[in-house]
């Protein structure tokens, strides 16, 4: 495992820990999109089915279980915790997330490496993950006061994607890995969606100002 991959995974892990910490300590999920979190549950369940079919490493297995468990846990808090659920910005989180699921699945049926259940589900999870951040970015744009934890959460999530791109470049050249266009392109699209956010995040950080996105 190379340094980019490890840093990417740690960034992803940290983002989830940060989000759970925000929810548990402040008893608030203000600014967080339930739609995005629900899409992540679908992404992880579809992708990590290979948990049962193939063993890669202890690290791999533990991380998969952590990502499934934490994503379900976050959705549970936002939907059912009697205090937390009242802080959810339901009226602002209006992206109809279920409409992106069928097109992603259809695309996976059409464009994949191998026509097997596992491979199509794996591919579906890549396509869905690429767009899963959209409801969150839209909610963020509508939020007047973005708290630091929410901003940092999204930054870490974006950093994870950017580091994975570097990881693929590294693997392609150093490990002579074969081209994996499906992963690369969906990963590239996913990372590109964060570009605008990154721009304002870094700008606010440099100017020591509170993060604010233009309406």
């Amino acid at each position: 495992m190379n340094i980019f991959r490890l840093a990417g995974d740690m960034s992803h892990l940290l983002s989830v820990i940060l989000l759970l910490l925000k929810i548990r300590t402040t008893k608030s999920c203000a600014g967080i999109s339930l739609k995005t979190q629900e899409l992540y549950v679908v992404v992880f369940l579809a992708r990590y089915l290979n948990l049962f079919t193939r063993y890669y490493s202890f690290y791999n297995t533990v991380m998969k279980l952590v990502f499934i468990a934490t994503s379900v846990c976050i959705v549970w808090y936002m939907r059912f915790h009697k205090v937390v659920k009242q802080t959810y910005n339901k009226d602002l989180d209006t992206f109809r997330h279920y409409v992106v699921i069928p097109p992603c699945f259809l695309l996976a049926l059409l464009v994949h490496h191998e026509f097997t259940v596992m491979e199509v589900l794996w591919t579906f999870s890549l396509y869905l993950e690429a767009v899963a951040i959209l409801p969150q970015l839209i909610l963020l744009q509508r939020t007047r006061n973005i708290d630091n934890l929410t901003g940092n959460y999204i930054f870490l999530l974006g950093a994870y994607r950017a580091l994975y791109l570097l990881n693929w470049i590294y693997r392609f050249f150093m490990e002579k890995a074969q081209a994996r266009w499906i992963s690369w392109i969906s990963g590239l699209v996913q990372t590109a969606l964060y570009a605008d956010f990154f721009y304002y995040y870094i700008k606010s950080w440099k100017n020591n100002e509170k993060l604010k996105l233009p309406a």
Binding site: M63, W168, E175, Q178, S183
Partner: peptide, 10 residues
């Protein structure tokens, strides 16, 4: 590296 490249990723 075999066809499962990148499948060890998360």
């Amino acid at each position: 590296i075999n066809a499962d490249t990148l499948k060890d990723e998360l």
